[in-house]
Amino acid sequence: MIDKTRADTASCVTDIADGATILVGGFGGAGMPHELIDALIAKAPRDLTIVSNNAGNGTKGLAALLAAGLVRKMVCSFPRQADSFVFDELYRSGKVELELVPQGNLVERLRAGGAGIGAFFTPTGFGTPIAAGKETREIDGRQYVLEYPIRADYALIKAHQGDRWGNLVYRKTARNFGPVMATAARITIAQVEDIVPLGSLDPEAIVTPGAFVDRVVAIGTGAAQ
């Protein structure tokens, strides 16, 4: 019998080691897997590379992971926020490295990583500092920049409901990076509000098929920020 469910968040992250590359879902607070991040902080692997759209808001979630000093490098598109003071201070004092990636390139690099694509040419960033030193090519009269995939050791994502096969549905704009990140990691761990019986999710509405998911843990409702 396939059973990807886990009893608690701690047992989802026990094998995450120092130096791991981890995709963290969410756009601001929506879709941020706060409880899985708390478990990661408790496990405390060091020198992590974190791939996420933002660099933490306030003092919870990704901001707490940064504050715990476990992150060596952030790969993100928009680390500058009014309430991202934790990252600001670490970055300015040289304690965390930043790879700034335009948001669409971040998404497409994850998509390529999950889809087995070796690299891709994108128009985004051509002629800007983002493209400095990168291979470019003119295709049908337009200029493109070569970008490479992102593949990670783990993905930590948040969904609305899941089942024991790992099938997931999301809630509103908390979906954001979840589906693509689920495809681009060796081990994908999803926290959900509740785990439902196999067969109760409408197959037409399943957004992430369980083949992309390795572990599912129920957090309960009211987990939104």
Partner: peptide, 9 residues
Amino acid sequence: IPAVGGAMD
């Protein structure tokens, strides 16, 4: 702090 988001896309 540099930040680009979706502007280049």
